[in-house]
Design a protein around this nucleic acid. Structure first.
Lengths: 226, 226
DNA sequence: CATGTACCGTACCGTACGGTACAGCGTCAA
DNA sequence: TTGACGCTGTACCGTACGGTACGGTACATG
């Protein structure tokens, strides 16, 4: 299925140490990232870096894949679910997603990948996308399908419903964070945003029968107070 | 009113030529942007660039402000409007917004600003934000308020309704484009997306009285077929 | 004509980067 | 003990960058 990146990713413990140092450097030093700095920060020789990762891009790619490999989370097995369970899981997803895109590591990696995407062809952006958007899609879409199968949701294309959910959850948060804006995103705000997004999503795609949309507009309006 | 950036922006014709060359270079050469390249592309000496803009960051800032100054568009005076006019204007906004964030110029500027935001402090991100998000907010919020005043819309906080609209319109398009993904965004797709977003927005925030939400869920589902 | 100004093209300087080469050090196996 | 191996630290190379300086040219003003 997946897989944009040929994923063996069998990094040795020492290599993992180095890649963690790269991540730390990206987060803390932002743009002032260089191979020499990585070597110094990780107490590692440049020659070893080049032997292991080939070149600068290889190091970046390995770092992104390393981070991707450890974000992988549980299955959220969505067997039989009733309406309130569905809402709960949607909120859970929204909280998870907002937490991820607001995390310093995610922001740093996205900044690097975006910078790379500007010049020439590299598949860094693809890897980040596969780790972020596609990973959450792989977990959320089964939930949406299960919700539809149980009669709680109504939509024609899972992808479209999924993208609308992403839009309702994230809105313009990620791009603002990437640009250095700091919309306060503490845990309280994230929880409230998740609640609102789930409410709005159910108002749009919930079925009448499940009573899930009943308080739709009123509640959505109320929740948007934040 | 506006203004994050102290806006005199009285660029001479020759300076405007140079700044256009910078934009062209950003779009075409992506990341391989340098002062020497700008000078060559614009048939202009580096010394002049430094005299005019101070340093590299000044040149970047001037370029962003120059682009911002000419995106400024009409008022969309939203006096009395009926339900169908409201929907029409919402779609118009959505088309405009999607066209902007998908344009090569916007993508290039956002990439530069995001790269800058990673390292140290510069207000480039603020300027881009002020040009993009805040500019469209300044035009859209009066429309939303007018729609509420006319009884067609119902929400407590204009900012929240506005952000939800942005989310419904843009979804994950901008970040995907920034990362080098290419979700096909021809004029047909943009028009369809705008229609869907307006439909969903009205389903969430429209009042029953105006009959604007009547076909809400059904139509939203149908439109999501793309 | 003389003078000043604004600009172009190019040469130049110091620095930092990506990438390579090499010397030294610990480890482990024969 | 010896040698192969993997690693660190550092020196080094070529290049490209940001920023400055200088010579040359067009033009405007007196």
């Amino acid at each position: 299925m997946s897989s944009v990146h040929s994923n063996d990713d069998a990094f040795s413990p020492r290599q993992r140490e180095v890649l963690d140092a790269v991540l730390r450097l990206m987060v803390e030093e932002g743009d002032r990232f260089s191979v020499a700095r990585v070597a110094r920060a990780a107490s590692c020789s440049k020659e070893t870096l080049y032997k292991w990762f080939g070149d600068r891009d290889g190091l970046l790619g390995a770092t992104v894949r390393w981070q991707a490999s450890r974000v992988r989370v549980g299955d959220y097995d969505s067997g039989r679910l009733n309406a309130s369970q569905l809402r709960e899981k949607l909120e859970e997803f929204a909280v998870n997603w907002l937490s991820v895109i607001a995390s310093p590591t995610s922001l740093a990696l996205n900044r690097v990948a975006i910078g790379q995407a500007g010049s020439g062809n590299s598949r860094l952006g693809d890897i980040v996308l596969a780790n972020g958007r596609l990973a959450v899609a792989a977990r959320l879409k089964p939930l949406l399908d299960a919700g539809r199968a149980a009669g709680h949701l109504s939509f024609d294309h899972t992808e479209e419903a999924f993208r609308t959910f992403l839009g309702l959850v994230g809105r313009d948060v990620q791009i603002r964070l990437l640009l250095g804006d700091e919309p306060s995103l503490d845990k309280k705000t994230i929880a409230a945003d998740a609640k609102r997004a789930a409410q709005q999503f159910l108002a749009l795609f919930g079925t009448e029968k499940s009573g899930i949309t009943e308080t739709g507009k009123a509640a959505a309006s109320r929740l948007s107070a934040n």
